[in-house]
Design a protein around this nucleic acid. Structure first.
Lengths: 139, 139
DNA sequence: TCTAATACCTATCAATTTACTAAGGATTTT
DNA sequence: AAAATCCTTAGTAAATTGATAGGTATTAGA
């Protein structure tokens, strides 16, 4: 019941690109170093993002990646779907019996509601906030 | 980003026990056959449920399991937490930077809201409803 | 034109998780 | 005693995760 590093690092990439939106390409090396991640691993994550048309690459020296769209037009859900697959708490919801099926649908819709209403711009603009914002970490 | 068969079969077990609540123990064999599941595998799932005090076992011939509590007092969240661990879309929410941390918290709270407000009684009483209830299966 | 920086591609791999299966021991009812 | 049941440990094939390794192709700038 987890979002893996694929989805999480994917969001990290998109947030970094959003911060530089309109200022030319950002290299993966820069993003990897700024976030202490493996550049090689990020290469594998950005390939699907490029194939999905969320980012555009600029090859050669001083190249890198840029967003193909406004950060306000790209949602967290767009990114997560590309890297993690369809948003759903179980495979084959249709095959479940009615009571559980409805439960999975309510969970799915709740997650979709959050992911599809959070833009990369939202994430980029809050990514420098200093501390915990008063949220508690209960489970 | 999935709930595995552990949590799903765990709910199945609890729903079956809820249907027979107050009528004496139900054996795993019965539950396994009714749902076309491996009895051996269910044994491994019910062990944590017993350790957590959600069910009580009655050994020997004509034994089985019973709920330790009213079906209306047990939530889907209780069962999922025992079998899948804490409800959270990522490990170590605290370690994430503010923007993503808030996103994970909103998702976690949305899931918790559904799971903690759905009782086993709710699930058992709707588990015989015939069809799809007009829900769509978009993603 | 050379060089460095960058994207792009394919393969491999260790660790973990998932979803079981196998085999039998312990306990209780009939 | 026999049968039904819970209980426990061990093993395992397949998939996934989170990388690492080792390149090739392309381009900007000196």
């Amino acid at each position: 019941m987890k979002i893996s590093t694929k989805g999480r690092y994917g969001l990290t990439i998109m947030i970094e690109l959003a911060k530089k939106h309109g200022e030319g390409p950002t290299s993966l090396k820069t993003i990897a170093q700024a976030n202490d991640l493996s550049e090689h691993y990020l290469e594998q994550l950005i390939a699907p993002l490029r194939n999905a048309g969320l980012v555009k690459s600029i090859r050669g020296a001083y190249g890198g990646y840029i967003l193909t769209n406004e950060p306000s037009k790209i949602t967290a859900g767009d990114v997560i779907r590309v890297l993690e697959g369809p948003i759903t708490p179980v495979e084959g919801i249709e095959d479940e019996e009615p009571a559980k099926r409805e439960l999975w649908i309510r969970i799915r819709d709740a997650i979709k509601d959050v992911l599809d209403n959070t833009t990369i711009e939202d994430l980029a603009s809050h990514s420098d906030d200093s501390e915990t914002d008063g949220y508690m970490f209960y489970i």
